[in-house]
Each structure stands twice: as C-alpha cells, then as structure tokens.
C-alpha cells in the first residue's frame, strides 16, 4: 500500500484544528488562547491551499489570503483586549474579569 500525500495533509490539518480547539478549551492565559485560535485558522488555510491544488483552481489560494488578513485583524483586536483587561492585574486568567460580563 502506497501513501498518498493529500490524505496525509488533510489528516494533519484535522489534527491541527483539533489541537487548536483543545487549546481554546484548556488555556487560561489569553495569549495562549489567541494562539490556539490562530492554530485553527492555520488549519483552515492549509485545507484551502490543498483544495486549490486538488481541484486545480487558484480561487482557494485567493480565499486563503483573505482568511490570513482576517486572522491578523482578529489577533490585533484580541491582543488589544487582553492588554486592556489584564495589564494591571496580578493574575492573567480569562475566567477572572467579571466587569466585562453581559
């Protein structure tokens, strides 16, 4: 039995996405949490680039570029929030702040 590269890449993307989801559930540090979200975005981009190749269409890579920009915007807003909320706190824990409830 010979191994084809495409299923290996899809399996890797699935694994990376699941790692990101587990990180979002597990992390208490806002930075680790945002990095886990970045992992999930990376896995989605990987599937898009692979799909662009498998279906022989450049559209997948174009959409991947847009998602990359989306990830950058998400990181900027998330990190600004983390800085604004946690800069003067002793304990950096996403369960801690109660004033942003509701």
């Amino acid at each position: 039995m010979s191994f084809l590269p495409e299923p290996i890449i899809v399996a890797t993307a699935v694994f990376i996405f699941c790692c990101g989801a587990a990180g979002v559930a597990m992390r208490k540090n806002p930075i680790g949490l945002l990095m886990s979200v970045e992992l999930m975005i990376n896995a989605a981009i990987l599937v898009m680039v692979l799909g662009s190749r498998v279906h022989a269409q450049p559209m997948g890579q174009s959409v991947a570029l847009l998602v990359l920009v989306l990830g950058a915007a998400e990181a900027v807003v998330g990190l600004a929030l983390a800085l604004a909320v946690f800069r003067r706190r002793e304990l950096v824990d996403v369960d801690g702040p109660q004033e942003i409830r509701g």
Binding site: L34, M35, A72, A75, L79, A82, F86, E90, V92
Partner: peptide, 15 residues
C-alpha cells in the same frame, strides 16, 4: 507580523 505582535504583548503583560 502576527508572531512578533504576540511576542510584544507577552513582554507587555504583567505575568
């Protein structure tokens, strides 16, 4: 860009 941004925020956060 993004990883460097993360590193800067790691340096700025207290913990």
């Amino acid at each position: 860009a993004i990883v460097v941004l993360f590193l800067i925020v790691v340096a700025l956060l207290p913990s």
